[in-house]
Design a protein around this nucleic acid. Structure first.
Lengths: 252, 252
DNA sequence: AAGCTGTGTGTCTTTAGAACACTTTCAAAT
DNA sequence: ATTTGAAAGTGTTCTAAAGACACACAGCTT
């Protein structure tokens, strides 16, 4: 509470936050993790937000994103990438419900806050998000059903998806969304969900197998009411090799 | 100097800055605009920086970048794109010379500042940068000769170049670096400079002409000591059309 | 007139993308 | 036991784009 912001340990910076768009995949569709302020009557998407919080003055932005993510969801050691900065002066104060929410969680609810957005990919079944101290509830929402969010978070989500679409064409980051063992069909479905369009099955398999980053586990699905599929795992070693040589494009 | 940061008109935000990597091209090589703090004896690259400054609380980030750019160089209405946020807690305080510089220009030289970086492309001959109030001098430096800069600006420059390389393959933004009338060889050279590798002349011409975004001016170079080249201009109308249909890839 | 310099042009080969249909394996239902 | 349903798995052809490559031309200089 000093007039001059001196560097003390662990002081929240009132002007900079991080927000994390966390993607999950249940082998059928893409989800985003949202928290609910619960500060309006009846359910409204506009009170849902992606998890985020102010940064400490002692941490860098990536660290802040990892910390916030861990605090809000318990997840650590995941794929995380910066989307960019969002800094409209009114980005968090446009809606009445947003302002009420801020008053309930921020020491300086009026402060102008720019946010640095990240997106991350997690193995959904590995955890059930728990509500944080300032969220009434937290949970997975199918991205196809989202059309509005608190603050400027819908815009942030759109940017995140855009970047994910771009990135998945040039890096095999999709594996972060799948279980250790997965089938080609599941990977195929994942690509279709992210890119938002149908992909030819045979062409997809050919291309992904040609990359030589999958290991066939010589193991089959069990208990499925149809021809069981081969299980694969991601081959990190070959991927490293491939990255160094630099592969630019396995576009679809 | 109030203890509580209240929203007043035109107050500088002590925690957020914008930095602009400004690229230019003289038909031979790529340049970056740098300003010189002049606060060490003898010339050193480590006292050169890309232009940037704190943002006002009333403007958004893009506006801030445009304002800073105009203030420092006089240029407006240019191509400008965000690179991302850089926020290491020590990003501006690592070097002694950086700290001296900050003390000379900042009201709160100790404040933790995250910066949002932009890059922009300008027609070099259109202006000569003038030194700003806090830079002893400003000028163009060939990017091939830069290997160190003040603060974390070298890192920012690297990100800018990376993004430019990526972007130029999927959008004809290179035209922002060329004069209104240019030859295919000049455009070719520009692509080689940005991508840092040789490109086959015939293949380049074929590809760029197939895009149908150039208009042959039916006009030739004059006074050159060799066969004069056709002059072209960028055809904005066709580009608009092409963008809407969505072209993803004219990669080299 | 000769020489220098950058302009301008076409073809062939290789590679990658796109389109497309039927058989197989298992579990569940009858 | 047989049938049915549901997803797995598999090759070929056609088309489009990328990459490699060499020589004649026009204007200026000397």
């Amino acid at each position: 509470m000093n007039s001059e912001p001196k560097k003390t340990k662990k002081e929240l910076n009132p002007n900079v936050s991080v927000d994390c768009v966390i993607f999950g995949f249940d082998l059928n569709q893409l989800y985003v993790l949202l928290i609910d302020s619960g500060n309006t009557e009846g359910y409204q998407q506009s009170r849902m937000a992606v998890p985020g919080d102010l940064i400490f003055d002692t941490e860098n932005l990536d660290e802040a994103a990892r910390r916030v993510l861990k605090e809000l969801t318990g997840i650590e050691n995941i794929y995380l990438e910066q989307i960019g900065a969002f800094g409209d002066p009114n980005r968090i104060g446009k809606k009445e419900s947003d302002r009420k929410w801020l008053e309930s969680i921020r020491a300086q609810p009026e402060a102008r806050v720019i946010t640095v957005a990240y997106y991350s990919l997690v193995k959904m079944p590995n955890f059930n998000p728990k509500a944080s101290s300032f969220a009434k509830s937290a949970g997975w929402a199918p991205i196809t059903e989202i059309n509005d969010l608190a603050f400027d978070h819908y815009e942030i989500l759109e940017s995140a998806l855009e970047q994910l679409k771009r990135k998945i064409k040039i890096q095999p980051i999709g594996f972060n969304l799948l279980p250790e063992k997965f089938t080609l069909s599941q990977l195929h479905k994942l690509y279709e969900c992210i890119l938002g369009k149908d992909l030819d099955k045979r062409n997809f398999r050919r291309k992904i197998l040609n990359l030589d980053i999958l290991t066939n586990l010589e193991e089959k699905q069990i208990g499925v009411p149809h021809k069981p599929s081969q299980l694969f795992k991601f081959n990190e070693e070959n991927y490293e090799k491939l990255s160094l040589e630099g592969f630019d494009n396995f576009g679809f």
